[in-house]
Simulated scan of single mutants.
Amino acid sequence: MEVDPPFHETYKALFPDFMNCITGSDHKKPNSMIEEYKLPLIDLSHLMMSNPDDQYHKEVMKESCIREIVDAASNWGFFEVVNHGIPEQVLKCMKHEQKKVFHQPFLEKSQKNVLNLSPNSYRWGNPKATCLNQLSWSEAIHISLTDISKMNNTKYNNLRLAMEEFSNRAFSLAKHLAEILAGNLGLRSSYFEENCPPNSSYVRLNRYPPCPHSSKLQMFGLVPHTDSDFLSVVCQDQVGGLQLFKDGRWVAVKPNPKALVINVGDLFQALSNGVYKSIRHRVVASSGESERFSAAYFYCPNNDAKIESCSHRQTSLYRHFTFREYKSQIQKDVQDTGDKVGLPRFQTSIFL
Rank of each mutant, 00 (worst) to 15 (best):
P5Y: 08
F15A: 06
F18Q: 05
K29Q: 10
P30A: 01
E35G: 05
Y37P: 01
K38D: 12
L39A: 02
P40F: 08
M48N: 13
M49P: 07
S50D: 15
N51V: 09
S64W: 04
E68N: 15
D71C: 09
A72W: 05
A72Y: 03
N75H: 10
F79Q: 01
N83V: 01
I86W: 05
P87I: 00
K95N: 13
E97L: 02
V101S: 00
L107A: 10
L107W: 10
E108V: 12
K109G: 06
Q111K: 15
Q111Y: 06
K112E: 12
N113G: 03
V114C: 14
P119K: 11
N120T: 02
S121K: 04
Y122V: 09
Y122T: 04
R123H: 05
Q134M: 11
L135D: 09
L135I: 08
S136C: 06
S138D: 06
I143C: 13
I143H: 02
S144R: 08
L145T: 04
L145P: 03
D147N: 11
D147M: 05
I148C: 03
K150Y: 06
N153W: 10
T154W: 13
R160D: 10
A162M: 02
M163C: 11
M163T: 02
E164V: 00
F166N: 02
F171P: 07
F171R: 01
A174W: 01
L177Y: 06
E179N: 15
E179V: 10
A182K: 04
L185Q: 07
P198K: 12
N199Q: 13
S200Q: 04
V203P: 00
R204Y: 05
R204I: 09
R207Y: 05
R207K: 11
P212T: 07
H213M: 14
S214D: 00
K216H: 15
L222R: 08
T226A: 14
D227M: 14
S228P: 14
F230S: 02
Q236F: 01
D237S: 11
V239Q: 07
L242V: 02
L242I: 10
Q243N: 06
Q243G: 03
W250M: 03
W250L: 10
A252G: 03
K254I: 08
A259F: 04
V264H: 05
V264P: 06
G265P: 00
D266H: 09
Q269Y: 08
L271H: 01
R280F: 08
R280H: 09
R280K: 15
H281D: 02
S286G: 13
S287C: 09
A296L: 01
F298H: 07
D304I: 07
K306Q: 14
S309Q: 01
S311P: 11
Y318W: 15
Y318I: 03
H320Y: 10
E325G: 10
Q329A: 14
I330H: 09
Q331A: 13
K332S: 12
D333Q: 12
Q335L: 13
D336E: 15
G338Q: 04
F346M: 08
F351A: 03
L352Y: 09
L352R: 13
